[in-house]
Amino acid sequence: MHVRDILTTTPTTTADALDLFDSCAAVEPDFMIGTWRGAELPTDHPLDGFLAASGWWGKQFLDAETVHPLLFPTRDGSALWAMNPTLAFSGLGVAEKAHGVKSMSFATPIAATRLLSQTRRSRARLRTTRYRGTDTATMVYDQLPINDVFHRISDDAVLGAMDLKGSPNPYFFVLRRDDSLRLIGH
C-alpha cells in the first residue's frame, strides 16, 4: 500500500501534515478495533523510510488492552506476525539512527529475526488522549515513550501522528482497514 492509495493530495512537510491532521475528525477508540494496513507519510522526519524499509505491514487493535503495533507479513505473504516494538526501537535513539534509511531495506533482516522478535503478547493499549487540543484515540506503547495519535480520514482510513518523546515533530503515517490476512500464533 502507498499513501496515495488513501490521500488524493499528499502533504510533504510537517506543517502541511499537521494542517491535514488538525482538519480531520477525532476518533473514538472503538473505531480503531480491527486490522489496519499502513503506509508512511514522508515529511522529512528523521524516521521517514524506516517502517517502509523494515517491511512493516500495519497494526492490529483487538480491544482497548490488546494491541499489536508492528505487524509484518510472513515470507510467503499469506499471514501476519507481530513484532516486539521494544526490539525494533531499542535504545530509542532511533531518530538519530534512522538517518539514511530511505534507501536501505531492513525487510530481509527483520524477516530473518522473526523467531527472536516475534511476540504473541500485546505490546500497546488504546486510550483517548488530548493531542493538539483534541481528545482522540491514541495507541500507547507499553514499554516505549511513543504514542500514536489518530484522526479520521474516512470510514476506513486514519491519519496517524507518532508522538515520540524527544522528537520536536511527529512522524506521520496512514492506516486503512484490511482484514485480508490473519495474525499467526493467535
Score class of each variant (00 low, 15 high):
residue 91 G to A: 13
residue 127 R to C: 13
residue 56 W to Q: 05
residue 14 T to K: 10
residue 91 G to N: 11
residue 156 D to R: 06
residue 55 G to F: 00
residue 154 S to N: 09
residue 48 D to F: 05
residue 184 I to R: 13
residue 130 R to D: 13
residue 16 D to H: 05
residue 85 P to H: 07
residue 68 H to T: 07
residue 131 Y to G: 01
residue 177 R to G: 11
residue 45 H to A: 09
residue 20 L to H: 00
residue 167 S to P: 00
residue 45 H to K: 07
residue 109 P to E: 02
residue 53 A to D: 08
residue 70 L to T: 09
residue 8 T to C: 10
residue 28 E to N: 11
residue 54 S to V: 03
residue 105 S to R: 08
residue 172 F to H: 05
residue 171 Y to V: 04
residue 86 T to C: 13
residue 20 L to A: 07
residue 110 I to S: 09
residue 176 R to A: 14
residue 136 T to Q: 03
residue 27 V to G: 10
residue 177 R to N: 02
residue 165 K to L: 12
residue 39 A to I: 08
residue 55 G to A: 02
residue 146 I to K: 07
residue 108 T to D: 15
residue 186 H to G: 15
residue 48 D to W: 01
residue 14 T to N: 14
residue 80 L to G: 08
residue 135 D to M: 10
residue 25 A to G: 09
residue 18 L to I: 14
residue 75 R to P: 11
residue 158 V to C: 11
residue 146 I to S: 08
residue 179 D to V: 07
residue 176 R to E: 08
residue 14 T to M: 03
residue 185 G to Y: 06
residue 41 L to D: 02
residue 125 R to P: 11
residue 156 D to A: 14
residue 129 T to P: 03
residue 18 L to Y: 00
residue 166 G to A: 04
residue 57 W to R: 04
residue 185 G to R: 00
residue 165 K to R: 13
residue 87 L to C: 04
residue 81 W to C: 02
residue 170 P to M: 04
residue 97 K to V: 14
residue 68 H to P: 11
residue 15 A to T: 15
residue 17 A to I: 03
residue 171 Y to E: 07
residue 92 L to F: 14
residue 83 M to H: 01
residue 136 T to W: 01
residue 15 A to E: 14
residue 5 D to Y: 06
residue 186 H to Y: 06
residue 177 R to H: 10
residue 34 G to M: 05
residue 21 F to S: 11
residue 115 L to I: 09
residue 87 L to K: 08
residue 105 S to T: 13
residue 184 I to L: 13
residue 156 D to N: 12
residue 184 I to S: 06
residue 34 G to A: 02
residue 142 D to G: 05
residue 2 H to P: 08
residue 25 A to H: 10
residue 22 D to E: 10
residue 48 D to E: 05
residue 41 L to S: 05
residue 2 H to A: 13
residue 47 L to I: 06
residue 86 T to K: 06
residue 34 G to N: 01
residue 88 A to M: 07
